[in-house]
């Protein structure tokens, strides 16, 4: 299902930040922004929704803790109780490091998987990029052309050019791409 996007590319973050501010003030919805490195303050400028990724991280971490404690309790207390060095079967202090490690493991791996699933870059997705240079030396603002008529698209292009975009192009993608708010939730 082909889907068209307008990609405005800047060669520096400063004009891009300025463009974001002006475009939003004009009431135009920005689909996404793609930059080669994290830009300070871009979340505020875009008015992006706060990501729920950290909530997922907490849930995965808590799952890891519970899983570790459950496994060790089942093995050392119920399934095969053994006395080691005179310690009780349920020797919690000795299990803290293992619980901690499994918390970190579950949290890290789970958060990474959710991150890729949500931003459409997992192995299950047909991954496409708006422009290769957006991971190199260009800062891109993406607009969804399916939701605007040609007159509005021309207006956005004109604004981007006025604010210093070095290249403006229409990119046809094979699939609809998730917007920044969809990636955050």
């Amino acid at each position: 299902m082909a889907h068209k996007y307008l990609v405005g590319m800047f060669d520096d973050e400063v004009p891009m930040m300025n463009a974001i501010e002006k475009v939003r003030a004009a009431g135009i919805a920005i689909h996404d922004a793609v930059t080669p490195f994290p830009v300070h303050g871009i979340d505020d400028a875009l008015g992006a929704k706060e990501s729920r990724l950290h909530t997922a991280g907490f849930v995965f971490g808590a799952t890891g803790t519970a899983f570790a404690l459950f496994c060790m309790t089942y093995i050392s207390v119920f399934d095969w109780p053994n006395v080691f060095g005179g310690k009780p079967y349920f020797s919690l202090p000795a299990w803290i490091p293992i619980s901690f490690e499994l918390t970190v493991l579950f949290c890290g791996v789970g958060t990474t998987i959710v991150y890729y699933l949500r931003n459409g870059m997992s192995i299950f997705n047909d991954v496409e990029v708006y422009d290769n240079r957006l991971s190199s030396d260009r800062f891109g603002l993406i607009f969804d052309l399916e939701s605007m008529d040609s007159g509005e698209a021309d207006r956005v292009s004109g604004m981007l050019r006025d604010f210093g975009a070095v290249e403006i192009k229409t990119q046809e993608m094979r699939n609809r791409q998730p917007s920044m708010d969809e990636q955050a939730s």
Partner: peptide
């Protein structure tokens, strides 16, 4: 704090 406590507790 916990590292000091746990190692001493475990080694006994």
């Amino acid at each position: 704090w916990f590292s000091q406590f746990m190692l001493i507790w475990y080694a006994n």
